[in-house]
Design a binder for these strands. Structure first.
Lengths: 217, 217, 217, 217
DNA sequence: GATGAATGAGGATTCATTCAT
DNA sequence: AATGAATGAATCCTCATTCAT
């Protein structure tokens, strides 16, 4: 569903490795995962086989990260193109924008944590990959806010952009933690739906874009 | 100043270990840090010495986390007490509340990352320590929102609480990442100040508490 | 001159492998060289290809050694034939003999080191190949010394033969080391020339063959 | 026996490691020896223990080499001091000098091979250690030859020095090879004795120092 | 004749931890 | 309270080799 018309019925070994690695790295971080573990997940009898596909653990990590990030960048760019064509108000544009990102994060439940870990780690290469995603998001937010400059003092605009980023991603990063405070599973369809509605109100409110229609579904 | 009546002029070895461990664990996570490394940081010539003070690496990790978390819990509780005594509007109460948390996060620049890592990791004990902090914060937010129930549908209230948590902590968690997008150092005094102002507007706006006074400094 | 009547304009893959292996094995010894490395040197994209030409690493090693050693054996045998036809004094005979060996060692700058390594290693097969060369050299020396038995006590004769062997080969074995003590490059044409002259005097002197003519060039 | 009056009855672990490593490295070279193997030789149940004493394999290798080389340097220096005090002719001086070196090489049957391997290998650090020994030997030889300048053209003098070095060390480097050509064991007492006598004649002959007395024992 | 993939064994090194001193 | 030494298990990665294509 994610990609193609004629999907490779049997995914390539490299892809299987990327999938397993994505899951593991999201769960326990770069240092918490062993290459052996990933190889075993894929059904490789030996870690050596993995090195046929990736130069080393770090390269695998970066490949996993880049794959997910680039996919999300695609989503965001497409959303930007669609937004510019539409006539709806800013609120609606932003709303559909946020919605697409949420859809991605739901479909790729490892990515939010993976990206957060990459942001935390002292690993320039990993962080640079994350920045490929975050920079356009951030700059887009800043631009939008500067254009309709009534709502926030100019010097606070970057902080608003960062805040919105955290508002959107934080929920998916901290699913496990939220399970300890919310009454139902934060990853359930219902909860995701509520989160969508919340963001649909909260993001414009933060941006200072008034929700002209009463279209809160 | 941190704790006692008779402050140890020369910090005890245990404290030095906790300090070093806090820094290291925040930087690279539990799995990324070696006991040897922490021992070396403290000037211990031998990792064995460390085991005189802590049972094992996990115990040390939990001790570091608990120390920081309990301190912050103290800040929050004190803030709650102060708030209930005060007469100011909700906005001001919430504002001073947020301010204290920010002050703590600035004074303990490792804690936000440390808490984020503990939230991500698949480590029940660590997450439970974090929950000691997050639960009251979360419940307080929920209560406040339920009391003045005009602004958010009841079922979205937990999501609002989570959102505010991410708004506050996210900035300090992702300092390193933000350095890649903001134009000046997000940890500078100026930037922290702007972040404070941002939160002073954003949190009430999100809560739906109108900022009655124009006291945005 | 090396081999055939119709020289392969484009050297065969097998030969290219032998060449690369010779260089590598001389540089770092059997254990220090990987099959991958040799394959890469030859431009093979895959180590597996190499196994099409040689049964295994050991077989390749022996082939390299044998190729070089047999060539040198040829030189020595030819020299012996030429010597027996000539009428010149023993000094001249020995001199031209040594000269040919030196010429070979200069033309095949890996062989001295390769032979030395094979002599050092605990590898019966390799050493046996070296002995194919050393035995005739040694026996020839012993015979010569025994024939003109005035110069050395019989029981020291084998030691003399060994000494001459080391005198000749040592210089080329230790080129790298000598670079650390000599003032100019021991592999330069000039230095090689001086080494030739040195041997032309030293070997007869050791053998106890007086240099009747003053033909030290 | 080699050194002290009050020998450590129980040699330290570090020394035991050095001993085992010396033997192994001499036998099979740096790349042919595994750390596990050395640890096992010493009776350590685990390779990790070895790392308590040496930083890594390379450091151990260099320590082994340096220990042996420095000991031999001591022998050589002492010999130089003794020689300068003596009144005997140059032949005798040189003879006793060579004798001491031979005595060392016999007492430390790994060192000649170890030094040869270090000279062959593409390892700057190792070669530099060897040069600590070879440089003074070489320079001493050159000086001696230049002082009594009748025997060799000046530009060949370095080659003479190198030749003598190979004459002396080669026999002990190639013991295993010589076993394949000599009729009795080149490491036997008798053979060593003959080698001593051979050198006592050969070295002066090469130097061009005439053997005034007929004292060939 | 060459290649991509896989694999078992082993490489050096680091890990957290224990124990005697 | 601190240290030197030891250890078993695990780390990442490379090794030579095989097999199907």
């Amino acid at each position: 569903m994610t990609t193609a018309t004629a999907p490779p019925l049997e995914p390539t070994t490299s892809d299987a490795i990327l999938d397993a690695a994505e899951r593991r790295f999201a769960e326990r971080g770069f240092d918490g995962v062993s290459v052996r573990e990933i190889a075993a997940d894929v059904g490789l009898k030996n870690q050596a086989s993995l090195y046929h596909h990736f130069d080393n653990k770090q390269a695998l990590y970066e490949a996993v990260l880049a794959r997910g990030v680039d996919l999300l960048i695609g989503v965001v760019e497409e959303s930007a193109r669609a937004g510019s064509l539409r006539d709806g108000g800013a609120a609606e544009t932003v709303g559909s924008y946020v919605d697409r990102v949420v859809t991605y994060l739901v479909a790729h439940p490892n990515m939010a944590r993976l990206i957060q870990r990459a942001s935390l780690d002292d690993d320039a290469a990993a962080r640079e990959i994350v920045l490929r995603l975050v920079r356009p998001l951030f700059d887009g937010g800043v631009r939008l806010l500067r254009e309709r400059g009534d709502s926030w003092p100019a010097d606070q605009v970057p902080h608003v952009a960062a805040g919105i980023y955290h508002l959107i991603f934080g929920y998916f990063v901290d699913t496990a933690l939220l399970r300890g405070v919310m009454h139902d599973d934060p990853a359930s369809d219902d909860a995701i739906d509520r989160q969508r509605k919340f963001l649909r109100t909260a993001v414009p409110r933060l941006l200072g874009i008034e929700d002209t229609q009463g279209d809160r579904r």
